[in-house]
Design a protein around this nucleic acid. Structure first.
Lengths: 162, 162
DNA sequence: GGTGAAAGAAAAGACTT
DNA sequence: AAGTCTTTTCTTTCACC
């Protein structure tokens, strides 16, 4: 199931999660590998699906979205759920949505230019299948996204020993 | 406050949020701009802080973390809060944390290799300042992270007209 | 702030160990 | 699977608009 990673893969993935805006040469030096081998490894990590995408993280507040709100939502019957899921896809202010198991059914990330914009999105959700909706206004990042605490897989360690 | 963006900036930011793993040449073509001008624009967007970081998004499940859990947490007094915030920074399984205003005080993203690993993290949080803790097991992505619904700023539109 | 051309750097590929 | 070398391609800088 899980992709086998050796020490070098772990190094590469950890670096790339922190900063993917480096040249292959810099990355090679950080990993203690030749540039060609590094290129090959990184390509394999992308092809295997370990690396999903490389993307630029934009500062929402800096580009006109001072409000970020997290919303926990429940839906009722199947009809409401379907309506809700469709609305989530349609609303551009909903920049991410997850299905969850627990006290609520969905977790949304919503951005807004101002309170009016936010209220509009909230209303749309409430009137399109949203049942109970709990909102949390994002105040600040306490811990900015960190790399996954990766470890070389047992198989990779074994391989290295041989 | 907000950085002024014109139509081209919006195009570039939208593309880079979706895929930053393109050459400057490809990006230039998508934006309808010369490679040199594109390079200049992107550098400015990074320097201005509109682009925070460029990073690789790793598939947690694919690299050995089949469980992702969101946790809403409240803390009690100032002492508990301080302990909690310290613990969040220390636990590598907590890969992101936000301070929020609303029914709860914090929103955490936690990854785990198995149920035992998850239980360990939960216990650490509960015993280090965590008050009420509500967990939501992530089932699936309903809407994968989309680019911000950016618009050219009024000033930039004005400029273009002149 | 944009364009176009030239120099420098990096990535991709073939071959060797 | 990794290292070296060569070719190709991209990035970067500069002068000019």
């Amino acid at each position: 199931m899980a992709i086998e990673l050796d020490e070098i893969d772990v190094k590469l993935l950890t670096q790339l999660q922190q900063d993917a805006d480096r040249t292959n040469l810099e990355l090679a030096e950080l990993a203690g590998l030749s540039p060609a081998a590094t290129l090959h490894r990184v390509r394999r990590l992308k092809e295997s699906g370990a690396i999903r995408i490389v993307s630029a993280s934009v500062d929402a507040a800096a580009v006109g979205f001072p409000l970020t709100v997290f919303m926990a939502v429940t839906t009722g019957n199947a009809r409401a759920t379907e309506r809700f899921e469709r609305e989530v896809q349609l609303l551009p202010q909903v920049i991410a949505a997850e299905t969850v198991a627990g006290e609520m059914d969905y977790w949304l990330t919503v951005v807004a230019r101002d309170v009016e914009d936010l209220e509009h999105t909230l209303t749309r959700i409430a009137t399109h299948g949203g049942g109970r909706v709990v909102t949390y206004l994002r105040l600040k990042q306490l811990k900015p996204p960190t790399p996954l605490p990766l470890l070389p897989s047992a198989a990779a360690r074994q391989k290295r020993r041989s």
